[in-house]
């Protein structure tokens, strides 16, 4: 459906996107994820045609649209600011794309009503945007796009101005709607939780380039770089130097086939109680509801975060022993391998 090759864009000499390739299948919901300034919005605007690329090619549905302006592309965009026209009623906002296409009045009315029904805003047609809540405005903005039956729906952080609860329920609605319509969708966000929840596939971006693309669970389980590992979920990160086939972690030696300076990363939920594990003192416990987040300190003065079910709750000040069931090994930014560390020796340090 979408085939981008070698796309680059810079603004006033500052590169915003460098030589990017991306393919998106029909009906797929892809999230572009990254911190602000990573080029995700630029990529979206290039696809919409609102800005032209410096180099590269944009194929939409098999057609070369690189030079086609936004008003002749089969894409429709929902903006972060909802961008509803304040001087038009909800119905006129939604019907705009149809009026531009010169459809007969009766057809516009019917399609507008159907689109409003689809986003759950039946009967709102006579209201002005100023009379809508943030969530309602964003639904109208979505209806305004859906009504023209775009081949690709583009969403630029549409929910980031809304409160957490509303964001969550809108996400679920959007996902259901997108599934039902089989609509190819690109969703830009800086919120990794949002991306994990929505996407069929997440494209992680950093400094104008794609860092990694994978399914949410694939990204979580196998982060290709240290920055992806730290951006998607949480990681306990330790710097270590491997010598003679071994590396130290929390005062314990672990077998390590590679040598040199390494970064060891471990998910908080991958730490498990183990009578022969690394000793640590419980500093603080945060109740997350189903889980507890426990802040720990090793005798070496290293901070660790541990996620555990409520049943296993320790008390602050308690000394416990933990062992990682999986450890991601990075050299610089690059993942070397993920190991299940075996304890080699047992030497008490504390």
């Amino acid at each position: 459906m979408i085939d981008l090759s070698d796309l680059s864009k810079s603004f006033g000499g500052t590169p915003a996107l460098t030589s990017t390739r991306l393919k998106i299948a029909p009906g797929e919901l892809v999230c572009l994820l990254g911190p602000s300034g990573c080029g995700k919005s630029t990529l979206l605007r290039l696809i919409s045609g609102l800005i032209p690329p410096d180099t590269g090619r944009i194929l939409l549905d098999g057609q070369d649209m690189t030079q086609t302006p936004a008003n002749r592309r089969p894409t429709a965009m929902v903006f972060q600011s909802h961008a509803l026209w304040p001087h038009m009623t909800v119905a006129r906002n939604v019907g705009f794309g149809l009026r531009v296409r010169g459809l007969p009045r009766s057809e516009i009315a019917a399609k507008t009503e159907a689109a409003l029904e689809m986003v759950g805003l039946r009967g709102f047609d006579r209201r002005l945007p100023s009379e809508l809540s943030g969530g309602q405005a964003q639904r109208v903005a979505l209806a305004r796009c859906l009504v023209v039956a775009p081949k690709v729906l583009l969403m630029d952080e549409p929910f980031s101005a809304l409160d957490a609860h509303l964001r969550k329920s809108l996400r679920e609605e959007l996902k259901a709607l997108q599934r039902r319509l089989g609509l190819t969708t690109i969703f830009v966000t800086h919120d990794q939780e949002e991306a994990m929840e929505l996407a069929d596939r997440i494209v992680v971006m950093k400094k104008g380039a794609i860092e990694q693309e994978d399914t949410p669970s694939g990204l979580y389980a196998c982060p290709a770089t240290l920055s992806v590992a730290q951006f998607i979920g949480q990681m306990n990160v330790t710097l270590a130097t491997a010598r003679d086939g071994c590396v130290a972690w929390g005062g314990r030696r672990i077998e390590m086939p590679v040598s040199g300076d390494l970064t060891l990363a471990c998910r908080p939920e991958d730490l498990l109680p183990d009578p022969q594990g690394v000793p640590a003192e419980v500093i603080r416990i945060t109740d997350l509801g189903p889980l507890l987040r426990v802040a720990l300190m090793t005798p070496q003065g290293e901070a660790l975060t541990w996620l555990t079910p409520r049943a296993a709750a320790p008390l602050p000040g308690a000394r416990i022993r933990l062992w990682p069931r999986a450890l991601h090994v990075f050299r610089g930014e690059t993942l070397l391998e993920t190991i299940q560390p075996q304890r080699l020796t047992l030497e008490e340090d504390a």
Binding site: A70, N71, F79
Partner: peptide
Amino acid sequence: PPALEEAAFDLGAS
């Protein structure tokens, strides 16, 4: 806001 004009252009208006 530029987005107001972009939204109209994006939806097919000249």
